[in-house]
Deep mutational scan, measured.
Amino acid sequence: EEEEKKKEEIARLLGVSKEDVERILKKNNLDIEQLLRRVQREN
């Protein structure tokens, strides 16, 4: 699934687990696209 791939990509870029990414998304109330763009910009 596309969303899972995005979570895995974010996890890889941040050096965290996919579960961490899911927690970040919930905690910050971000959607996956916003987080992915933010992470890609910083790297």
Rank of each mutant, 00 (worst) to 15 (best):
E1P: 12
E1L: 14
E1W: 13
E1M: 13
E1H: 12
E1R: 12
E1Y: 13
E1V: 13
E1D: 13
E1N: 12
E1A: 13
E1I: 12
E2V: 10
E2L: 11
E2A: 11
E2F: 08
E2T: 12
E2I: 11
E2Q: 10
E2Y: 10
E2S: 12
E2W: 11
E3A: 13
E3M: 15
E3S: 11
E3I: 15
E3Y: 15
E3L: 15
E3G: 11
E3K: 11
E3P: 07
E3V: 14
E3Q: 13
E3F: 14
E4V: 07
E4A: 09
E4S: 08
E4H: 07
E4Q: 08
E4W: 06
E4N: 10
E4Y: 06
E4D: 13
K5F: 11
K5W: 13
K5M: 12
K5V: 09
K5I: 10
K5Y: 10
K5E: 10
K5Q: 12
K5N: 10
K5T: 10
K5A: 13
K6Q: 11
K6T: 08
K6F: 08
K6I: 14
K6M: 15
K6E: 04
K6P: 02
K6S: 06
K6L: 14
K6D: 04
K7L: 12
K7Q: 03
K7I: 14
K7A: 04
K7N: 01
K7P: 00
K7D: 01
K7H: 03
K7T: 05
E8C: 09
E8G: 09
E8I: 12
E8N: 10
E8W: 09
E8A: 12
E8R: 10
E8K: 11
E8T: 10
E8D: 11
E8L: 14
E9K: 10
E9C: 09
E9G: 04
E9D: 08
E9T: 12
E9Q: 11
E9N: 06
E9P: 00
E9W: 12
E9S: 07
E9M: 15
I10G: 02
I10D: 00
I10E: 00
I10N: 00
I10Y: 03
I10P: 00
I10C: 13
I10S: 01
I10T: 05
I10H: 00
A11S: 07
A11C: 08
A11R: 04
A11M: 08
A11I: 03
A11T: 03
A11Q: 03
A11G: 06
A11V: 03
R12L: 08
R12Q: 08
R12C: 10
R12E: 07
R12M: 10
R12I: 09
R12W: 07
R12Y: 08
R12K: 12
R12P: 00
L13H: 08
L13F: 05
L13R: 07
L13M: 11
L13N: 03
L13P: 00
L13D: 01
L13V: 05
L13T: 03
L13Y: 06
L13W: 05
L13Q: 05
L14D: 00
L14W: 02
L14R: 01
L14F: 02
L14Q: 01
L14T: 02
L14A: 02
L14E: 00
L14H: 01
L14G: 00
G15I: 00
G15E: 04
G15W: 01
G15P: 00
G15Y: 01
G15H: 06
G15D: 05
G15M: 03
G15T: 01
G15L: 02
G15A: 04
G15S: 04
G15N: 07
V16K: 05
V16L: 09
V16S: 04
V16R: 04
V16G: 03
S17F: 04
S17D: 07
S17A: 07
S17K: 08
S17E: 06
S17V: 04
S17G: 07
S17Q: 07
S17P: 06
S17M: 06
K18E: 05
K18N: 06
K18I: 14
K18G: 04
K18P: 08
K18F: 09
K18M: 13
K18V: 15
K18L: 14
E19D: 12
E19Q: 12
E19H: 08
E19V: 09
E19C: 08
E19T: 10
D20M: 13
D20N: 05
D20C: 07
D20L: 09
D20K: 07
V21K: 00
V21D: 00
V21M: 02
V21S: 00
V21I: 09
V21N: 00
V21Q: 00
V21A: 01
V21E: 00
V21G: 00
V21P: 00
V21C: 02
V21Y: 01
E22G: 03
E22Q: 04
E22W: 01
E22H: 04
E22P: 00
E22T: 06
R23L: 14
R23E: 13
R23T: 11
R23P: 02
R23H: 12
R23C: 05
R23D: 13
R23Y: 09
R23A: 14
I24A: 03
I24R: 02
I24C: 09
I24T: 03
I24G: 01
I24N: 01
I24Y: 11
I24M: 11
L25P: 00
L25R: 02
L25N: 00
L25T: 02
L25E: 00
L25D: 00
L25C: 09
L25Q: 03
L25K: 01
L25H: 00
L25F: 01
L25G: 01
K26P: 00
K26W: 04
K26T: 11
K26E: 14
K26N: 08
K26Y: 06
K26M: 11
K26D: 09
K26L: 11
K27Y: 09
K27E: 15
K27V: 14
K27R: 12
K27H: 12
K27W: 07
K27D: 15
K27Q: 14
K27L: 14
N28S: 14
N28T: 14
N28L: 15
N28W: 11
N28F: 15
N28C: 14
N28A: 12
N29K: 11
N29M: 07
N29L: 07
N29Q: 08
N29V: 05
N29A: 08
N29I: 05
N29F: 07
N29E: 07
N29G: 13
L30E: 11
L30S: 04
L30H: 04
L30D: 04
L30Q: 05
L30K: 02
L30R: 03
L30W: 12
D31T: 15
D31Y: 04
D31P: 04
D31R: 05
D31C: 06
D31I: 04
D31A: 07
D31E: 07
D31N: 11
D31M: 05
D31G: 10
I32N: 01
I32G: 03
I32C: 06
I32A: 13
I32P: 13
I32E: 03
I32T: 09
I32R: 00
E33N: 13
E33V: 02
E33A: 03
E33H: 06
E33M: 02
E33D: 15
E33R: 02
E33K: 03
E33T: 05
Q34L: 05
Q34T: 13
Q34F: 04
Q34S: 13
Q34Y: 04
Q34V: 08
Q34D: 15
Q34G: 13
Q34P: 02
Q34I: 07
Q34W: 05
Q34H: 09
L35Q: 01
L35A: 03
L35N: 01
L35R: 00
L35W: 03
L35I: 04
L35H: 02
L36F: 04
L36I: 07
L36H: 06
L36V: 04
L36A: 05
L36K: 03
L36Y: 05
R37H: 13
R37V: 11
R37Y: 02
R37E: 15
R37S: 11
R37T: 11
R37Q: 15
R37P: 03
R37K: 14
R37A: 15
R37D: 15
R37F: 01
R38Q: 15
R38E: 15
R38M: 15
R38I: 15
R38G: 09
R38Y: 12
R38A: 15
R38V: 15
R38K: 15
V39N: 02
V39E: 03
V39I: 14
V39K: 02
V39R: 01
V39Q: 03
Q40T: 12
Q40G: 07
Q40C: 10
Q40N: 07
Q40Y: 03
Q40R: 12
Q40E: 12
Q40I: 13
Q40S: 10
Q40F: 02
Q40W: 02
Q40K: 10
R41N: 14
R41H: 14
R41T: 12
R41V: 11
R41G: 14
R41E: 15
E42N: 12
E42V: 08
E42I: 09
E42A: 09
E42D: 11
E42R: 06
E42K: 09
E42F: 04
E42W: 02
E42T: 10
N43R: 14
N43I: 15
N43H: 15
N43L: 15
N43A: 14
N43W: 04
N43Y: 07
N43T: 14
